[in-house]
């Protein structure tokens, strides 16, 4: 993944990205993905709880 990002940036930039900045970029991607998965997890739990209540009544 790191080499993929370095390759992408190299194609469009004359500057070589540092390994540190590539790591930071991956951290940003990971944090965003985790946040979204957390929100989805909350939605799924709400959905399932509602389904349970709907089935009971």
């Amino acid at each position: 993944m790191k080499y993929f990002i370095i390759n992408q940036v190299q194609q469009h930039s004359s500057q070589m990205p540092s390994a540190e900045s590539t790591d930071k970029y991956l951290v940003v991607v990971a944090v965003i993905a985790v946040l979204f998965i957390g929100i989805v997890g909350y939605l799924v739990s709400l959905d399932l709880k509602l389904k349970k209540i709907e089935n009971q009544s």
Partner: peptide
């Protein structure tokens, strides 16, 4: 019990979130 369109929404947004930052 989660309907298919909800899962499709999650998959598409997850792709867009990650692909949006990594793809050229």
């Amino acid at each position: 019990s989660i309907q298919w369109w909800k899962l499709a929404g999650v998959a598409l947004v997850l792709f867009a979130l990650i692909g949006g930052l990594l793809l050229p």
